[in-house]
Simulated assay, not measured.
Amino acid sequence: MARVLDINRSDKKGIAKEPIGEGIFVEDFGLENDAHAGKWHRQVSLLAIESYHRMEEMGIKDLPIGAFGENITTEGVELHKLPVGTVLRIGETVQEVTQIGKECHTMCNIGRTVGKCVMPNEGIFTRVLVGGKIRKDDTIEVELPE
């Protein structure tokens, strides 16, 4: 079963986010009070704990949740394998996957601190279709596009 490990936010882009346990996700905007939110296609960023485990296998240990700047850390679903257009029902929200990975033009603070960033290949981005609250341990339902 896929679930939320934590909700994370920050005041600035390109830095690690702090776990907050729960958050309000605003329709067509993103996580309330997060630097990443806005009226664009990358309103919410998600990264699976399985990606953290891959970093640990490469020798990078003790990474705190939120280290890669993701808004939602998940467990039980390989996010980067989901196609664009996938609908995620997370807590009270409905979100649509809009992008898999991202291009990093310069080494961000995360990459400098951690040594490598998995967001360019394994992070995903969504647009909030229906807003609401998401809490730690909420389930994630995946609806693949037809």
Rank of each mutant, 00 (worst) to 15 (best):
G101A: 05
T106L: 08
R112K: 04
G85N: 14
V97G: 05
I90W: 05
L82W: 02
I110P: 10
R112T: 01
R89V: 12
L82S: 03
I110A: 14
E103M: 13
T93Y: 04
H105V: 03
V94R: 11
R89S: 05
T106I: 08
G101P: 02
V87T: 15
G111K: 00
Q99C: 09
V84L: 04
K81N: 11
V84I: 03
I110S: 04
E103G: 09
C104T: 03
E92F: 08
R89M: 13
P83Q: 12
M107P: 10
P83M: 10
I100G: 12
K102P: 09
V84E: 10
V114Q: 01
E96S: 11
I90D: 07
V84K: 02
M107V: 09
I90M: 07
Q95H: 12
N109K: 12
C104E: 02
T93N: 05
C108F: 00
L88V: 07
G91S: 13
T113Q: 04
E103S: 14
T98H: 06
C108G: 00
T106K: 07
T98D: 13
V84Q: 08
G111S: 00
P83N: 12
T98I: 08
N109Y: 08
L88T: 14
G111L: 00
P83S: 09
G85Q: 11
I110Q: 09
E96K: 14
T113P: 03
G91V: 15
T113W: 11
T106E: 13
G101N: 05
K102R: 05
R89G: 06
H105A: 13
L88K: 14
V94Y: 15
R112A: 01
L82V: 07
T106S: 10
G111N: 01
E92N: 11
T93G: 04
E92G: 03
T98F: 13
T93E: 07
L88C: 08
I100Y: 07
N109L: 13
C104H: 00
V97P: 03
I90L: 01
T113D: 09
V94F: 12
T106A: 11
T93W: 03
C104Y: 00
G85C: 07
V87S: 06
L88E: 12
V87R: 10
C104M: 02
Q99S: 15
V114N: 00
M107Q: 14
R112W: 00
